[in-house]
């Protein structure tokens, strides 16, 4: 069904090489709205992982029955159903988390990343591959959005992990900076998301350039791109 090499390739693509936020720059709306804190960013990404994995799986399963000309409505239909299922499921069984993410779960359908992966990957690959692709794309989103949220939250309010108590009861936010830290509000507002994201993209590109230079300097070393993250 799926080989180890394929799995590794999909993993590296989703989490690093084709990272949805840092490389493809998709799904900017949730990125802007939900990364005001680490917890928010991570939770929304988790929901996205479920939606993307399942819709990728279903589309790949049915791909031979979907005519070309009506593929878009069908994709949207499938993704929307998956989103609604996740929405209902979370509402029923993870109500606390649903309270935080409630209004953003239905918005996952507007995340162009979902449709983009279906259109470019799921329709051309097997169900398992498509599921992993969706999940790992979401995983890539998870770590980037978490990091983005953490940075914005830290600069903006001087705390880390605010809102964690809604996810894991008993844990509390950590106030890193002294209480009289005035807060740097731009960081929490949408422009801050753009600025921090730009810095992250710059850091990634800088790393890639350096890595390429290193690879060029020692050509005999076998390059395993998969190993870098």
């Amino acid at each position: 069904m799926i080989t180890w090499a394929e799995f590794k390739e999909i993993f590296v693509n989703g989490t690093w090489r084709q990272n949805s936020s840092l490389v493809q720059m998709l799904g900017m709306c949730p990125l802007l709205a939900m990364t005001t804190s680490l917890v928010n960013g991570a939770m929304l990404s988790l929901a996205t992982i479920i939606v993307m994995g399942s819709s990728g799986f279903v589309v790949a399963l049915l791909r031979n029955f979907i005519p070309y000309e009506i593929r878009i409505p069908v994709f949207i239909l499938i993704a929307a159903v998956m989103v609604t299922v996740v929405d209902l499921g979370m509402n029923a069984y993870m109500h606390d988390m649903y309270n935080i993410l409630g209004i953003f779960i239905p918005l996952i359908i507007t995340n162009c990343l979902v449709l983009a992966r279906i259109e470019t990957f799921a329709v051309k690959n097997g169900p398992l591959q498509a599921m992993f692709d969706g999940a790992f794309m979401g995983l890539g989103m998870l770590w980037t959005l978490s990091l983005l949220g953490a940075i914005r939250e830290f600069i903006g309010t001087g705390t880390v992990l605010s809102g964690i108590e809604a996810v894991i009861p008993g844990l509390h936010q950590i106030e890193v900076l002294p209480a009289d830290y005035p807060g740097f509000l731009v960081s929490i507002l949408p422009p801050g998301a753009f600025i921090v994201l730009a810095c992250m993209v710059a850091a990634k590109n800088w790393y890639e350039v350096k890595a390429a230079e290193r690879a060029k300097r020692q050509p005999p070393a076998p390059i395993s791109a998969a190993g870098c993250h």
Binding site: I70, V74, L77, L88, G89, A92
Partner: peptide
């Protein structure tokens, strides 16, 4: 196209209805 899309819609709406009634 109409027929195929109709079938998809019916199928997935059924799934949705099931999940809804369950939850």
């Amino acid at each position: 196209s109409a027929v195929i899309l109709f079938l998809f819609v019916i199928g997935f709406t059924a799934v949705l209805a099931t999940v809804f009634s369950m939850t």
